[in-house]
Amino acid sequence: MPERTTHAEAEGTQPSASVAWPIELDAVTVRYPNGVVALRDVSLSIAAGEMVSVVGLSGSGKSTMIRTINGLVPATTGTVTVGPHVVSKLRGRALRELRGNVGMIFQGFNLADRASVYQNVLVGRFAHTPTWKSMLGMASSGDREIVLRALDSVGMLEKVWGRAGALSGGQKQRIAIARALSQQPEVMLADEPVASLDPPTAHSVMSDLARVNTERGLTVLVNLHLMDLARQYTTRMIGLRAGEVVYDGPASTATDADFEAIYGRPIQSRDRLGK
């Protein structure tokens, strides 16, 4: 476990790349209780600090795969290893601690709309806060500092006391990024983070994610269904089709034929976001 002192937190020192964690999936299969097999014997290994996209059509298993990494979806067979932890071996408190080290953002932002921006970002401190302290509404001054710093880093500091629901889609996703950053995570997961945004906003949120990778050195795994975003913002691409890995290689040089193999059909205009 990396050491993080309160002093370093208060100083706001950039976490060095060495705090990032690698991710390893070994023969992972996920079968949902209704019998659907969403992932089939997936093995891959992602080095610490990589910026990886997972590309595939809707229903190909992207959300399922990303959720096996923080244990929101348990692997039916196979092992998922994140940093020093084997996810399937963790229960209760240990699982919550792992999740505290893995930030996640979602297509639908998943904010409590009627709660304040501050309360939403404070969610990122849960794993670092005893439940009784949360109950009494006692955020430590360190936590408050981290929340404000995270909001500042996505340019949302002036919205801190407003309602989350009053913001635009792009602003909401930035709040969600701040929530994940306030966890001070080693890994950042993003499940179609720009699918609900207009093209210019989508590009700026993707840039924010790319900065999380380059400036903080986190391992970033981002689900996308658009080929141009994968090419432009990520270095490595994993193609999923019907729950199986059908491509694993560099993203920027992936050819149209590679994408056609992933999609299992000719490329259409809706596979690209454009500017």
Partner: peptide, 14 residues
């Protein structure tokens, strides 16, 4: 938003 809380390692009470 519950899923986000769980993903961040929160207890249901938190």
């Amino acid at each position: 938003y519950m899923e986000a809380g769980r993903a961040a390692g929160g207890t249901q009470t938190q």
